[in-house]
Amino acid sequence: MARRETPEINAGSMADIAFLLLIFFLVTTTMDVDSGIARKLPEKPPPGYVPPILKEKNVFEVNINRNNQFLVEGEYMNIDQIKEAAKKFINNGGGTNEDGEECTWCTGERDPRSSDHPSKAIISIQSDRATNYGPFIAVQNELEAAYTELRNELGLKLYGKTFTALVKDLQNDKKNEELKEKIENIKNKYPQIISEAEPTQ
């Protein structure tokens, strides 16, 4: 007798099985990437810590009331004016930093009534407890944008590349020390100092 050949396994239903798996994954997974505005909270002050006394001209005050209106440096403002005002304040360079050095890279007006130096310029956000979260984020975003724009300008001037582009380059080439140094340099020249005051009740 001739040997019987082993019958072939029918692969016709393979597609059905794969479709079933596919649909399962489509249903149970999500595709959203988590993105957001990154912030670092200040550390808890040690007991008995006395906060340093700041000159009023070095503080850029942003108040948000419960009707989601903004008061910036005592002036009523719209959301799209905040960025320019913040940039002007940070970039002013009217005086010297702690070591008595002038801000050589500032392109601002050097008004003695505004901030002394980017490393001394502090932005303070105070909101009401009943402020909506959306406008609060909008302000955070505008202030972040102010710093980014200033850093971009400085990056273009020093290295011919914007700060954002440098950071992107670093992501593709994480071990590049030279790039890291450049980014740190720009960050140190425009340090981001944003403080959030206790909200009003």
Binding site: I64, D128, T131, P199
Partner: peptide, 23 residues
């Protein structure tokens, strides 16, 4: 409301979870 978020941030600060992201 910002108040709710502020309360959370105060708690996070207490236990030194300082890196946050406003999604």
């Amino acid at each position: 409301y910002v108040g709710t978020v502020t309360d959370i941030k105060a708690e996070l600060r207490e236990i030194n979870a300082l890196k946050i992201s406003y999604s």
